[in-house]
């Protein structure tokens, strides 16, 4: 379970850590969108500079980012190779059947690689510097306008924060049930595919049943503590939009403008 990067939050006290989670969430999405505007070396260099700058500002160990890329490296290489061998145009260096190695292919491959790395770096930076709960809070705030079209925003954000709170608890329980079943002779991860699937049943069923019990207990406890739905509640956790957030947004907008300029250069 150690490889799960989702919600792997590294507490710290940098400018990026102190930013409003709403700003971080918006900027991460914004960054992913503007990556697709980049179409030459200058623009990619600019985006790399922005990413490295953000990472330096967050004062997070760079090793985390390499770890973030590692589980996806095969997907990235596969896509890059497809780009390299199936794109045509420019000087052709080598040709064999449907495959060809061309100048454009190599350039496109390199661009795709850069895009992947940039997206992963930025999203890793978001999860490393923002506690899961802050992300849930930010989503709630950002979804507020959807209340007008009758989207149950409070309920969605409550479900999200309860889900996030129970992830480690359920992981602990999964490990416990696995060990209990192992001690009774169940082999996990061994044998043919059919046998492996069958071995999962004694893990899944108890986990499901206990989740139902948990849900019932939790609902009773919430009701006993006066929970009557999302309306009319006050909030304990609040986030304030600070100067740092405005500056961050300004930097990203400036990057977008330069990017648009570089694109048509």
């Amino acid at each position: 379970m150690g490889k799960v990067l989702l919600g792997r939050y590294v507490p710290g006290d940098s400018i990026v850590h102190r930013m409003d989670p709403r700003a971080k969430l918006i900027l991460s999405f914004f960054f992913i969108v503007i990556i697709f505007l980049a179409n030459n070396w200058q623009s990619y260099a600019l985006l790399f500079a922005l990413t490295i700058g953000s990472i330096l500002a967050a004062k997070v160990n760079f090793a985390f980012f390499i770890k973030g890329v590692r589980p996806l490296i095969w997907l990235i290489l596969f896509t890059v190779l497809l780009q390299i061998f199936f794109s045509s145009g420019g000087t052709v260096f080598w040709r064999w059947g449907p495959f060809n190695l061309s100048y454009y292919g190599l350039i496109n491959g390199a661009y795709v690689f850069c895009r992947f790395v940039l997206i992963i770096f930025m999203s890793t930076l978001l999860t490393l510097t923002t506690a899961p709960l802050e992300i849930a809070d930010a989503l709630e705030k950002l979804m507020m306008p959807l209340k007008k079209i009758k989207v149950p925003v409070y309920e969605i954000s409550l479900m999200l924060s309860i889900a996030l709170r129970f992830v480690p608890t359920l992981m602990d329980e999964t490990a416990k049930i696995m060990n209990a079943q192992r001690s009774r002779g169940v082999n996990f991860g061994e044998g043919s595919i059919m046998q492996q699937i069958k071995a999962v049943v004694p893990l899944l069923v108890p986990l499901f049943v206990s989740s139902f019990n948990r849900a019932e207990d939790l609902a009773t406890a919430m009701e006993a503590r006066g929970y009557r739905g999302g309306e009319g509640r006050t909030k304990y956790r609040v986030h304030y939009w600070q100067t740092g957030d405005t500056v961050g947004c300004a930097v990203f907008v400036a990057v977008l403008i330069i990017l648009l300029f570089l694109r048509h250069w």
Binding site: A131, R165, N213, D217, L218, A221, M222, Y236, R237
Partner: peptide
């Protein structure tokens, strides 16, 4: 099962 918040103060 009665711990609703993400951390103690919540």
């Amino acid at each position: 099962n009665q711990f609703v918040g993400a951390n103690v103060e919540d």
